[in-house]
Simulated scan of single mutants.
Amino acid sequence: MVNMSDAPFFSIIIPLYNKAHHIKSTIESALDQTFEDFEIIVVNDGSTDGSESQVQAISDERITLHTKQNQGVAFARNFGVEKARAERIVFLDADDSWYPTHLEDLKALFLEYPDCGLYCKAYYKKEGKSLNPSKYNNLPTAPNWKGIVKDYFDASIVNCVAWTSAVAMPKAVFNNLNGFDTKITMGAGEDIDLWMRAALKYPVAFHNTPTAIHHLDATNRISHSNTNLRRFINLDQYDAYAKTNKSLKKYLDYNRFAFAIQYKLAKNFEQFEAYRDKIDMSNLNNKQIFLLNSNRLTLVLFSRLKHTLNLLNIRLSAFN
């Protein structure tokens, strides 16, 4: 039995799979926090590139390393939470990073809004030298705003309010929701799924000052896995809720749009049509409808153009 009086304020969970080039700087960004009452639990999910030795080379008694057979990121995070001593869980992926005040800001959110199920910080998206803040729909833009998100799904239409390396959750809430769904594989929405379940059941607190960085050009990103080998989140399970929640229905349709485009790019036209046919087209904007009706070659060209413009700090998005 853990003596909770000796437990840290936060347990930081880092799943690790073949991120030897990134894990050291990721952990250092956690160790550099202004708020220092935490433990770091690294779950090495069967890495084969020397990632484990990179962690072992860092000397700090707050770090615990567990090495497991490769079972996927959802399993690794769930295992890390099982080992956590703190009552509050913070997630950090092995190729992302934090600014020094990240945990300090999350602590303030916990103390000011103690009854929430999800605590979120704004974040940056980094690609090359381009660093762009996440954007949200119908949320206050005043500097340093924090509060309860009135409509999580409406707010998440452009960028999701909850992003894995910028969220925290009470361990009790995580356990009540049964953690990440291990049936979803290769980063195909296991995080989105958990945040949706949390938002449907609990209030969500948010602080709009970005303190985390999503490194989109990191090597070996799981989101670059073969689309046809991934098992995506089952969006249909939320349809019953969506009948009385228009914002949720639109959020589901935006995600169906995104999955449909991925499948068309992967030449899986059967799955493309399956997602497309469940979308209420009145929920999509003109750009999305255009892309949905475009042939695969056009999508490939737009995808390459988007990547090039991102590197030039010019952001294109189909979601706004």
Rank of each mutant, 00 (worst) to 15 (best):
V2C: 09
D193Y: 11
W163Y: 11
A240Y: 15
N268L: 00
N286I: 15
D181K: 11
K250V: 11
L92K: 07
L284T: 08
K24F: 07
D60S: 05
I41E: 03
H215N: 15
T185G: 12
A198Q: 12
I279D: 00
V204A: 10
K171Y: 07
K24T: 14
F9N: 01
I58N: 02
S317H: 06
K24R: 13
N293S: 13
N313T: 12
I40D: 01
T101L: 14
F10N: 02
N245A: 03
V300L: 09
H21S: 15
N228Y: 00
A162L: 07
D93M: 08
E87F: 00
N293F: 09
L316P: 12
Y17S: 13
L31Q: 01
F232P: 14
A172H: 13
Y124C: 11
S225N: 08
A188C: 06
S29A: 03
L301M: 13
F10A: 00
A218K: 10
F257S: 03
H215R: 14
M1P: 09
S165R: 07
V161P: 07
L111I: 00
T219F: 14
A7E: 11
D193S: 06
D191S: 08
Y251S: 02
V43K: 04
Y136A: 08
K264I: 11
G72W: 00
F10Q: 09
R276I: 00
T67E: 07
F259L: 11
G80K: 04
Y119S: 06
L92Q: 04
Y254L: 13
L106Y: 10
M169V: 06
F290L: 14
T164S: 14
K126Y: 03
G187A: 11
P15S: 08
T26G: 03
A108I: 09
D239T: 14
H215G: 05
N18I: 10
T308H: 08
N44P: 00
P100D: 07
K183R: 15
A122Q: 08
K278C: 09
T185Q: 10
L106E: 11
M281N: 07
N78E: 09
G50C: 04
T26L: 04
T298L: 12
D6R: 05
P140A: 03
K107C: 04
F302I: 12
